[in-house]
């Protein structure tokens, strides 16, 4: 029982990070029906940027909390720029091409960004400074750290903020309108390219935060970290119902839980297999995803 509770707590922390990354996949899919495989690498760039900038800030004598905040903001800015550039340079020219072309381009962008990651940051594992305390806190039989609590709380706040943005603002309505029908949205005076760029920017900025979270949680970052994380988050998005914001969040949290609770029964090496088996099972019995459902559209 204690083990189960502990694994649920661990699962929620990891799952909330998956959910943040999954949102990036699902937002882009919702609006372009494109799987942006480069999104995992955007997360990596966010993490590595934060490693270097926060270390520099600490060296300049800045306090850890301020350094974390500024480094995260900088990462968000860098990732949003990278995301918008990827869309502008790689995906937009292919917007009317057969679906396979942008898909292959997305994979190519993923590899390209990894290589750029090596060129800019290097091949090493870089340690992420402990900016928020990782001293264990024990509640009953469950142990966590201030860092983990921070990750979970910030993730939930960000998800709530995104939902609010998408459902309660004019820009959010435009995003949903573009996702549903680009041509008609254009007729309403929506600048579709701008909305798509904003979508990439928001998704990438969320990815940057997720990258900082992963780096801080594991205490390290490297150029290849985005690959498995991206794949997992993509799995989470599909599991929840790709294109659906709630789906990405539910899928992310669920995947984190499944993986960590699964660890009670299988050895750590099998953790990844567990996640993908769940994906296969969900896809067999509910191909539209757990939350994914469409409103009846009458002609």
């Amino acid at each position: 029982m204690d083990v189960l509770l502990q694994q649920i707590v661990n699962g929620l922390v990891v799952g909330s990070v998956y959910a943040l990354v999954a949102l990036g996949y699902t937002m882009v899919y919702g609006i372009l029906q494109l799987i942006n495989f480069a999104h995992g690498e955007v997360v990596m760039i966010g993490a590595l940027s934060a490693v270097f900038s926060s270390k520099w800030m600490l060296a300049m004598g800045m306090g850890p909390i301020l350094a974390l905040l500024l480094a995260t903001l900088l990462s968000m800015l860098i990732c949003a720029t990278v995301g918008v550039l990827i869309e502008r340079l790689a995906y937009r020219p292919l917007r009317n091409a057969p679906r396979l072309a942008p898909l292959i381009t997305a994979i190519a962008m993923s590899i390209l960004l990894q290589q750029i990651g090596i060129l800019v940051f290097g091949r090493n594992y870089f340690t992420f400074p402990e900016l928020i305390s990782k001293t264990p806190l024990t509640f009953g039989h469950v142990t966590t750290t201030p860092n983990e609590i921070m990750i979970f709380v910030v993730s939930v706040l960000l998800m709530g903020g995104l939902l609010w943005l998408v459902h309660n603002t004019k820009m959010g309505a435009a995003m949903r309108a573009v996702a549903e029908n680009q041509k008609i949205a254009g007729l309403m005076g929506v600048d579709i390219n701008k909305i798509i760029a904003i979508t990439f920017a928001i998704g990438s900025a969320l990815g940057a935060i997720a990258g900082v979270m992963v780096a801080s949680n594991y205490g390290q970052a490297h150029y290849y970290m985005g690959f498995m994380l991206g794949l997992k988050a993509f799995t989470a998005a599909v599991m929840g119902g790709i294109g659906n914001l709630w789906g990405a969040m539910v899928g992310g949290l669920l995947l984190g839980l499944v993986e960590n609770v699964g660890l009670i029964f299988v050895r750590g090496d099998y953790k990844d297999i567990f996640a993908f088996v769940v994906l296969v099972v969900v896809l067999i019995f509910r191909p539209q995803g757990l939350v994914g459902e469409r409103v009846a559209e009458r002609a």
């Binding site: 004019k170 309505a173 435009a174 949903r176 549903e180 309403m188 005076g189 409103v295």
Partner: peptide, 16 residues
């Protein structure tokens, strides 16, 4: 827009 409410559809008309 099938997935937007009636009110939101009208607001989209006034987007500009």
């Amino acid at each position: 827009f099938a997935r937007l409410s009636v009110h939101e559809n009208l607001l989209m008309g006034a987007y500009a």
